[in-house]
Design a protein around this nucleic acid. Structure first.
Lengths: 342, 342
DNA sequence: CATTTTCTTGAAATCGATTACATAAATTGT
DNA sequence: ACAATTTATGTAATCGATTTCAAGAAAATG
């Protein structure tokens, strides 16, 4: 009942040629004579032949797939990026493997096993918070050029990176609030140690200074990108003597939680305080009030990262040059920011 | 500079045994003598040997990976499910490949190529809206037992399925609203033809009847699971002569968009109308007002699906029995529902 | 002590493609 | 017309594991 797998041998027999010719017809049609090409193509469709990828992968020493490593599979922030990555990969005939940092760790695998394994030809890492020893291992791995970071990165490590203009985003945020008339602006940061948190915070501080705006230390509220942190930050704001009239949150998730918590305490946005986020996640638009944010083109980040990786994988030699691609951000003004009321 | 790959041959040489013994030591340690086992283990760690998966996959005719097919990569609804799937797969040493229906279609691949290809040993499909011809092909594929559906399914097709208790969820929604005192309840449905839409709508209608509640035809508002449909439904509600006091939406995304649109027209939830959703996505809790919903345990759906697939893949014979596993739902009461005001 | 059974191990075939090399045929140049 | 190319194809090695079969050693049996 179960028909045996059709192999290249079967096709060769049917077409009356050798397997080498079949293989050539399929991968480099131009080197075979037109008449045989036609005969082979016919044999292929008659037999219903499908290339066995495991065999090809073994012979060519290529996995024809790429690993995407996420900090957390359940975080919707990444889905659009995956879409971009997947699109580019599938154009090149590559498959997308997905794993989360935590899972890899828990299962006792080591990250570069994926490369050593012949399971993946490269990896796109979306988690800048990898342990130092993991990074060290990756750097000493044989195929360093096939590892790249997207969105986040690791300070001091020489991996190619695709990221958005974090600093520019923070500057635009400050400028936007400033232009609305705000002078007292707070910043809820990302998690301590996170590279994005530093980039955004530093730029925030710098821009405040360059606009001659005051900045009390307590207006820098340390959070992380979680919902809980947004709620906590809201309580911090509520407890302040001299409340800032605007708050720039390091992520949309923070901002939305911040607003939600405020509303549970009968404060209204933007009447009592203007709030803005960073990322422009899908939900920002649907929230009430809709959220002013700094938009990251996540699709493009994903596509760019995948394309860079493809280029490196297909490059004849190990190109050692490190490359950083920066994707622009844009301000999206919605209802959560307004001029301050006096 | 680039050290050659360590193969099983190298290990065998170092340990002074044959490759067969090395292979046995690694995959069935109990059949080799303890002393040789020790010697081999040592050789493995000395050489830093890593199994080449491509080679194993070819020889064993297993890809050791599973394809997960999503309707849309960018939809956050699925992320938690992926987490569940990935967890179970990685425990079994399997990798998770991800693709979207649209992408597979656009790239000209056929779905079962993934199986024929030796790229995947099975697939979990999260999209019940596949074209009829795709379904027909899948049914006629050689390895039908290695295909299963999760969340959605295809009416009439005999694939094993994991789904949540859609009907029970709809009943609980009606009961909840009824117990708050609502008598006029509308339902915003999912997209026409969708199996979830039908299950939920039918159960809604039935439960309304069994509670002797009136149900005008216009109270069944056809939507889809999109944000736009939620907005449109809100406008439909606003335009009604005799407005229902409660609205049960077939998804959270619908419900949130519904509420957002109402608020743009100066209606308040739950004061003017109670609204509830289905799914309990992460955001339901953060919305203002927080959303009453029917919770699907997405993690568990993912885990169950993956486990079922693993069992089938590892089953000695092609078990043809169709199985449907139903995962319970639960009512989560939040702020978007309240007794009607008269 | 001969015979059977059980443990261990190795030699070699195998999975299904790709590709280096060889060879035969066709084309070109002089 | 003969040598030199070019073009098209086939032979066979190869990728790196797993597994069947056979065989020698050790243990158990009568």
């Amino acid at each position: 009942m179960i028909p045996k797998n059709v192999t290249i041998q079967d096709v060769a027999r049917v077409a009356g040629v050798s397997t080498a010719t079949v293989s050539r017809t399929l991968s480099q049609p131009d080197v075979v004579n037109e008449s045989t090409r036609k005969r082979v193509s016919e044999a292929v469709s008659v037999t219903g032949y499908r290339l066995n990828r495991a065999a090809r992968n073994l012979r060519t020493q290529r996995a024809h797939s790429v690993l995407v490593l996420l900090p957390d599979l359940a975080n919707p922030f990444f889905s659009e990026i995956l879409k971009g990555i997947s699109r580019v990969l599938s154009q090149s005939g590559y498959s997308m493997l997905i794993a989360s940092t935590k899972q890899v760790h828990d299962s006792g695998e080591r990250l570069f096993d994926y490369l050593d394994d012949a399971r993946a030809d490269g990896m796109i890492i979306l988690d800048g918070g990898l342990d130092a020893d993991v990074i060290a291992m990756l750097e000493s791995a044989r195929q360093t050029s096939r590892i790249l970071f997207a969105c986040e990165w690791v300070e001091g490590a020489d991996f190619p990176t695709v990221r958005c203009e974090n600093r520019q985003g923070a500057r635009e945020a400050v400028n936007h609030l400033h232009s609305l008339g705000h002078r007292k602006i707070a910043h809820v940061t990302g998690p301590a140690g996170n590279v994005l948190m530093h980039a955004r915070k530093d730029a925030f501080v710098a821009q405040m200074a360059s606009l001659d705006l005051p900045l009390k230390p307590e207006w820098l509220i340390t959070g992380d990108f979680s919902i809980a942190a947004g709620c906590a930050a809201a309580q911090t704001w509520i407890a302040m003597e001299d409340r800032p009239t605007a708050v720039f949150c390091a992520s949309d998730q923070l901002a939305l939680a911040f607003i939600a918590e405020l509303s549970r305490h009968a404060f209204t946005v933007p009447d009592d305080v203007s709030v803005m986020g960073f990322d422009d996640i899908d939900f920002a638009e649907q929230f009430i009030p809709s959220l002013t944010s700094i938009r990251q083109d996540r699709l493009r980040i994903g596509e760019t990262a995948a394309q860079m990786l493809m280029d490196r994988i297909n490059a004849p030699t190990d190109t050692t040059e490190e490359t950083t691609t920066v994707v622009p951000v844009s301000l999206v003004v919605r209802d959560s920011t307004a001029p301050p009321k006096h």
